[in-house]
Design a protein around this nucleic acid. Structure first.
Lengths: 291, 291
DNA sequence: GATCCAATGTGAGAATTTGCACAGGATCAC
DNA sequence: GTGATCCTGTGCAAATTCTCACATTGGATC
């Protein structure tokens, strides 16, 4: 049974009772139908039909095939409907990935988008490793830093995330606020432990003596936790810091601190209504947290 | 969704994750697989797979198709097994048709055959009209009289059914037994009302005056009922008459009375194990009721 | 980091499939 | 019974599909 088209042909013949009728429904010549039936019967070693002048009537075997193929036909029709609809509707899953840093600002966006499309299930992936669009692990990725140049990816600039220096009120109460950059040597800082190429990190390493960076973490999220806990002065996205009453802005944001953001989708999914719809929504929402 | 082979191709790609693997399983060139996928995606307007260097990974839509096609594949495999088995095994239905006359002698044969093949369902069709093998109404037919010459039918001689003249004991007690053919004018007979070409009927019309045929029916079965009820002397198959203690044989069977019997099968079904098996069984059993 | 390997993708020829035209029956209606 | 119609079946030409060969591109491994 290695030729499903022949099964489909036999199905129509069994359903309609004539080769001509089946040929018309299938949109092929009736000679083709006859050949399909003959081939199928030969392969199976069973007569599916009895030939007579009025057409073909299914044998027991033919009726058995009719039953099975009927359900197959129904299921394929349903499948086709689902798939065609899926192309132009916003349903199913939407898988988004980004660095964990963006979780606080992205979560409201995702929630808002899902509310506009109740049939949608949102999966938001953050983790140690980079989730790869090429393997279909996500539909949309938000990446920071140098422009990704993966071949099959569609990359769009996504502005810059405004960053500023913050400290907790508790830290300020105990250590005051640095008057200028020269005063940084008298303060404690929270920074990356690894030598990342993030602009704000390069700036920090240049301006602040290494020994003043007293609290170092491997990821941005833990860095935020360090700042809010009062470990020292550190970089936070403004849009994140706004959510915490306990934080004091030490320095306002500067363009040179922020790394460019990129919106990345796989070329195969970029055109789909679901992804396009989300990208539009995302860009609109993102206007609020630009530099 | 008018090309089930493409669905099958997509199914294998979704299952195996690579075009090459699917091509090997399907026994076609990988270029063919790629074309099938492209065609299917174009027709559906949905990306089923994400292409990358390691192969194809199914999208949501592809996974949906995978689920549906998997069940289809399973069902087709089961169907194929059933159909192939049906060709060489004796299962399912066996549909036999004959004149109602043969019911008493055929019933034991059918029952015996079914006991040898418990998975078999026997349908025995007798009725006013002739059931037609061409339309698949029956697998095997037992016909009497002239050799059938339908084109697509396989006809085998099936001997002769021994016929003899019988009367009920009650009739004999009241009217005695005719001493010779000349004495027939003093007796009552049961015969066909219609002018059938059956040999025994022709003989009866010739030998017995029409007015002595006092009980006339349209079918053989009713004729038998007439004889057993004591309406007169009439023809019965010996094998049938033996089952009735109440009957007395007036004249022993003669070859010229019996019409030839024919075993008829449709050419499409003749070769099947089921039909062949039944024909063998039937011929063996029939040796008992020959002339 | 160079190399090997295993994938996908594409153009041209070959092979299979398909379509067409016509023949042959069988049934139905009148 | 006779014409009309509908169905199956088959030889031959056309068209589509498939195969083959080669290019290309990432990924893995040493």
């Amino acid at each position: 049974m290695d030729n499903w088209d022949e099964v489909r042909t036999a199905f129509q013949v069994a359903r309609l009772g004539t080769v001509s009728g089946a040929a018309e429904v299938l949109g092929v010549h009736h000679a083709t139908v006859i050949r399909h039936i003959d081939a199928l019967e030969t392969k199976l070693g069973v007569k599916l039909f009895q030939r007579h002048a009025r057409g073909y009537t299914a044998t027991e075997a033919g009726n058995d095939l009719l039953q099975v193929a009927q359900t197959t036909d129904d299921q394929f029709a349903q499948l086709s409907g689902r798939l065609k609809g899926r192309g132009s509707s916003v349903t199913g899953e939407l898988v988004v990935t980004s660095l964990a840093t963006f979780s606080p600002v992205l979560a409201p966006v995702l929630v808002g988008f899902r509310e506009e499309h109740p049939e949608l299930t949102v999966r938001y992936l953050t983790g140690d490793r980079l989730f790869r669009l090429e393997y279909g692990e996500a539909h949309v990725a938000i990446r920071a830093g140098a422009a990704p140049d993966q071949p099959d990816n569609v990359v769009q600039p996504f502005g810059h995330q405004a960053l500023a220096l913050y400290a907790s009120k508790r830290y300020v109460e105990r250590n005051g606020v640095p008057e200028n950059e020269a005063d940084f040597v008298n303060h404690s800082f929270v920074g990356h432990d690894a030598e990342t190429r993030a602009p704000f990190n390069l700036w920090l390493r240049e301006v602040v003596p290494l020994e003043n960076i007293v609290y170092r973490t491997l990821d941005n999220r833990s860095m935020q936790d360090g700042v809010t806990a009062g470990a020292g002065i550190g970089f936070l996205p403004c849009s994140v810091a706004e959510k915490f009453d306990d934080l004091v802005q030490i320095e306002p944001s500067r363009p040179e601190w922020s790394a460019p953001l990129w919106l990345v989708t796989h070329v195969d999914l970029h055109r789909t209504a679901k992804v396009q719809s989300f990208l539009t929504y995302l860009k609109r929402a993102a206007k609020d947290w630009e530099v």
